[in-house]
Write a protein that binds this DNA or RNA. Structure first.
Lengths: 151, 151
DNA sequence: AGATATCCGAGTGAATTAGTGGGATTTGAG
DNA sequence: CTCAAATCCCACTAATTCACTCGGATATCT
């Protein structure tokens, strides 16, 4: 029941990208320096974000990445689902029909997983990238040489 | 971000135990038959539940397990935390003080993990074993030969 | 032309998961 | 007393997932 480094690093990368891509494309190497995440690993993460339609890429020299839509329209849930491949703690709860679970399809614990899942989705969908970027800028102002977070 | 089989099987075992331990101790082998979980694996799970103070054991012949307190006083969260060793998606969010995260201790994503964590705890702590046992009995009555859930 | 980028897939060591198996100990019943 | 039914308590392992790294192809601005 842990969030993987994909989700943790990826959200940081996405905040960084939202923060710096307002006027120019942001390269992976610059995110790598600021966030202390390796270039090769970042490539993987951003590939997933691109496939999910959250960022656009510009190839070639002076290229990089930009958000595919305004930061206010991107939720933490969008980012985390793209990186983790769904945020569902138990697969059963996604099966909507009666056909799930063996036999006649009754499953008491299914109700539990569904409820846990709903609460997670509510939480992550209620936070937008814009809010986090604003927080991040506030923090940086009061602490210019801060190193960021190591997790 | 998946719940392990420990949590999934263990909650089913606990519901089964709560269901059948009202008048006599319940043996691992009887849970094993009803829930289709191997005896050896169940031993591990129930050992954790015992260590967490959720069940008591009675050794020797005709022995078995009983709940350590009324089902209404045991939440899904109690069970899952005992089995999964905490339900915290990111460790950082448990560090309460300012000392977390490198450098000066600012961490924007920390707020995110904290919020996800809180919503999970709220969800699991709001469901009691008693409710689930009641559900389970209702289901069994309307579907006597049901096989239960396979996850 | 060359530097700076993204793009893409394969490979790998470490850690975790999901179990099994063997044997010691305890205790009620016959 | 003895035996069978239980819990208890390890240690072990195969498979999977995680957390990356590496090499090279492709595109594009200067």
């Amino acid at each position: 029941m842990k969030l993987s480094t994909k989700g943790r690093y990826g959200l940081r990368a996405m905040i960084d990208l939202a923060d710096y891509s307002e006027y120019e494309a942001v390269s992976i190497s610059s995110i790598s320096e600021r966030q202390s995440i390796s270039v090769s690993y970042l490539e993987q993460l951003i590939a997933k974000l691109k496939k999910a339609g959250l960022v656009n890429s510009i190839r070639g020299a002076q290229g990089g990445y930009v958000l595919a839509k305004p930061a206010i329209d991107i939720s933490v849930g969008d980012v985390l689902r793209a990186l983790e491949g769904g945020l569902v703690p138990v697969d059963c709860s996604e099966l909507t029909g009666e056909s799930s679970c063996s036999g006649s399809g009754h499953c008491v614990t299914k109700f539990v997983w569904q409820r846990i899942n709903d609460s997670i989705q509510d939480a992550v969908d209620s936070m937008t990238l814009e809010e986090l970027v604003a927080d991040s800028r506030r923090v940086r102002q009061s602490n210019p040489e801060g190193t960021g977070c190591d997790i």
